[in-house]
């Protein structure tokens, strides 16, 4: 703190490495295009002009899992799709987070039958659940900001 008081006018800031790393992770988190069903349309609406996701650093959605950090599971996961989902999650490099968007991904939603996996947390570990059927784009943005808060509280050794 003493250093900052002396060098304050020169535009120098001191902080911890953790904070810088977490700050950079939250401000440039690239989501992976994983829209499955109806929630995907609301995710696309959140990305489009009215509710802009680019202002949170998510300028584009990467289709390739190797180049993305965040998997937003948007939509219902059927039993045929579940192994594909797990494989894509495994292909993403660390650090990676998962938002389960919508009711079907969080808990099976309206459907309770043989074909839908009741909750995507049976397949991948989830960080934030966003409720709604489908959640409004503002709800998704709230979920993303909650994830940012969670990331800001992470320690470096979580992903080391």
């Amino acid at each position: 703190m003493g250093v900052e008081q002396k060098l304050g006018n020169l535009g120098v800031v001191t902080t911890s490495l953790e904070k810088v790393v977490n700050w950079s992770r939250t401000n440039a988190m690239w989501p992976m295009l994983f829209g499955l069903a109806c929630c995907a349309i609301e995710m696309m609406a959140a990305q489009a002009a009215d509710y802009d996701l680019s202002r949170f650093g998510m300028e584009l959605m990467r289709a390739s899992p190797r180049q993305s950090d965040l998997m937003i599971v948007a939509g219902r996961v059927s039993r045929k799709m579940a192994p594909v989902l797990r494989r894509l999650y495994d292909q993403m490099p660390d650090p990676k987070w998962v938002i389960s968007m919508g009711d079907c991904a969080s808990c099976g939603g309206v459907f309770n039958n043989y074909a839908i996996v009741p909750g995507v947390d049976e397949v991948v570990p989830v960080d934030v659940y966003v409720a709604g059927c489908p959640p409004r784009p503002e709800a998704l943005i709230h979920g993303i900001l909650t994830l940012h808060e969670k990331v800001r509280g992470e320690k470096l050794r979580d992903w080391a």
């Binding site: 039958n113 009741p118 049976e122």
Partner: peptide
């Protein structure tokens, strides 16, 4: 139908223990 039991407060913990989390 193949459905799973709905979780209410009275059986929440019991179902939670059996649920296969990833």
């Amino acid at each position: 139908q193949g459905y799973e039991e709905v979780q209410f407060t009275f059986n929440f913990d019991e179902i939670d223990r059996r649920k296969p989390y990833a």
